[in-house]
Every structure is written in structure tokens, then in C-alpha cells.
Simulated scan of single mutants.
Amino acid sequence: MDSQPVKADAAVTFGSRGFDAGKKINGRKRHLLTDTLALLLAVLVTPASVTDRDGARALLPPEAGSFRRPARVWADGGYTGNLTDWTAQHLGFVLAIVRRSEDVRGFQPLPRRSAVEPLLRLVSAQPTPGQGLRTTHLAR
């Protein structure tokens, strides 16, 4: 499970967007739930001001009954707090927080997040309505 804030177009109404202070983005936030093969299970779009924990509370309950009951859901540090207790109590599965090692410098993929990260990049690369396809030409 992961989320990603996205800048909103001028055509997006103010009621459906918000400001994500952490990423400094005015727009919406996509909350994604995938399986371990990076197959998309659920998507929730909220204003960017919605925290990851609040988005997870809205995303997980309907999905808990839609698929085989998960034993564990992996998430990043944005989901820490009482959400781990809430998922165990109300939904009956473990929310495992994947933490970054303190001694690592620069970018390093987090374990168990390898399923959702490529999907976030793929979704971000898709053109939005009104935006033409972008093409890249390789020099030979």
C-alpha cells in the first residue's frame, strides 16, 4: 500500500483537491493497494491534504471483503501510528511498516515495496486528458 500526491489541473474543482504540506503539492492524492505481483487491487483518490493513515482507513475496509483475506499488508512510514492496531482490531490482518535503514545514504528501494513503486511510476507516466502523448526519440 502506498500513496502519491499529484498536482491538480486548473479544471479540477477546489473542493476535490487539497495541499500536501509534506510534498508541497496542491492537488489530489492516489492511494494504491497492490498484491505482491504488483497487480492493482484498489485505488482511492482523495484531496492531497488527506493523510496516508486516513486514506488507508477508507481504502482498506471495502477491500478486506473483496479478496482473499490478506494476512499482512506492507506500507511505508507514513502509515505509522494507531493504524496498525486499528487494522488488527477491525480488519483482522497485520499492517507491517517497512522502515528505511538509518545507515543508508541516498536512494535505496525499500524491501517489500518493490511491488507498488513500479506501478506508481507507470501511473505517473500516463498522459492526462487534454495532454498529448509524449514521445522520446533515441539517437542512433
Rank of each mutant, 00 (worst) to 15 (best):
V45T: 10
F67V: 11
A64M: 13
T80N: 09
D85A: 15
E63D: 10
V94D: 14
T128N: 07
R99K: 15
R121C: 15
H90I: 00
L91I: 05
T135N: 03
R100M: 05
D52C: 06
T128E: 14
Q131W: 02
G77R: 14
V98I: 15
V43M: 12
Q131F: 05
V104Y: 06
V116W: 02
V98A: 09
F107L: 11
A88N: 04
L133N: 10
G130D: 06
L44T: 05
T80E: 13
V50W: 01
R121P: 00
L119Y: 03
R72G: 02
P62Y: 04
F93M: 09
G81Y: 03
P127S: 09
G65R: 11
T46G: 02
L122N: 06
T87L: 03
E63S: 14
G78R: 01
P109I: 07
R72H: 10
L60R: 04
R57P: 03
R100L: 04
A75F: 09
Q108S: 14
A56F: 08
W74N: 09
G130A: 06
G132K: 05
F67A: 06
A75I: 07
V94Q: 13
A115I: 09
G92I: 02
D85T: 15
T87Q: 03
V104I: 14
P61M: 10
A56Y: 03
S124Q: 13
P61I: 11
L95N: 05
R100Q: 12
P118G: 03
R57F: 02
S114L: 09
D76L: 07
P129T: 10
G92T: 01
S49C: 11
D85M: 10
W74C: 12
V50K: 01
R100P: 08
G92N: 04
W74D: 02
N82C: 10
S124A: 15
D103K: 13
L120G: 00
G81C: 05
P127L: 07
D103I: 00
L110W: 07
A115F: 09
D54H: 07
G106E: 02
R53Y: 00
V73D: 00
V50G: 01
W86D: 09
W86H: 11
T136P: 00
T135P: 00
G81H: 05
G130L: 04
V116A: 02
D52N: 12
N82R: 15
R57A: 08
V104M: 08
F67L: 13
A115E: 07
L110R: 06
Q89M: 07
Y79C: 04
G106C: 07
V73W: 01
D76M: 06
S114E: 11
A115L: 08
R68S: 11
R72C: 15
L133Y: 12
V123Y: 08
V98W: 11
P111K: 02
P109F: 07
R72S: 11
